[in-house]
Amino acid sequence: MAKPSLAVDVAGIRMKNPVTTASGTFGFGSEYAPFVDLNRLGAIVVKGTTLNPRPGNPPPRIVETPAGILNSIGLQNPGVEHFIEAALPYLRQFDLPVIVNIAGDTVEEYAALAARLNGVPGVAALEVNISCPNVKKGGLAFGADPGSAAAVVQEVKSATRLPVVVKLSPNVTSIVQVAEAVVKAGADALSMINTLLGMVIDIRRRRPVLANVMGGLSGPAIRPVAVRAVWQVYRALKVPIVGMGGIVTAGDALEFIMAGATAVAVGTANFINPRATLDIIEGIERFLEEEGIKDIRELIGAAHR
């Protein structure tokens, strides 16, 4: 029997398999090159990029929780110019769609970033981060409200010809409402979910562990929440979804695909197994062979049928 086809297309981003990386967990790719042949990934989503360099939040920035981690990095990054000059040339040598995660304090900043990255060789798409829980301005301030989320997306869309993926937060009353608003504003695809807002207290010091008090929860602990979000949005809208949230194994990834995701992103799992992305790709292929399925696309939304 011929090998099953793993290729998917997310709003014009052509991926040789449905597995990409979650922004902020895979750096700019080179960090994982000793462990992963980047040519084998479906795509890469790089660390959140802002117009100007950002120092990030004070440490401690991470704390372990049951089957998860809480982080508050605060978008530390060298700025978009440094990304274009220093990080992007490295990534261009691979056969790998590069999706740039962008974040800003204001609608104008998002638009300026989108304009700056438009037409830059090697950029396949933008992921608009309106869901970072760890910055004072921007981030979740936009993503928690359907109206302001739509305003950001509209400006980004008019500033670029690249496919625009909008990353949604689970920290909202109705993720479907936000999804509807950003799709109406022109979003070509959605990625979900970003981290869940949480906190941990050190009882000996009687203080929050994270210097920034609250942080974003990720890892296997949040997976059922993420699968539910993908299920709800797939049911309500016809838009490609990149599913993420606690994916560790191929089975986890397939849950998201059956809930309605066209592609999946691996985040926290990279920390415990630097080869997690490749193990998941191989596992998905094995599953398709075992089940006699010729094309991964047959499974997208399969749990709804």
Partner: peptide, 15 residues
Amino acid sequence: ERMGCGVGACLSCVC
């Protein structure tokens, strides 16, 4: 410092 990825990708363990 409390660490995430160990390879410089996640920016958790800064000083």
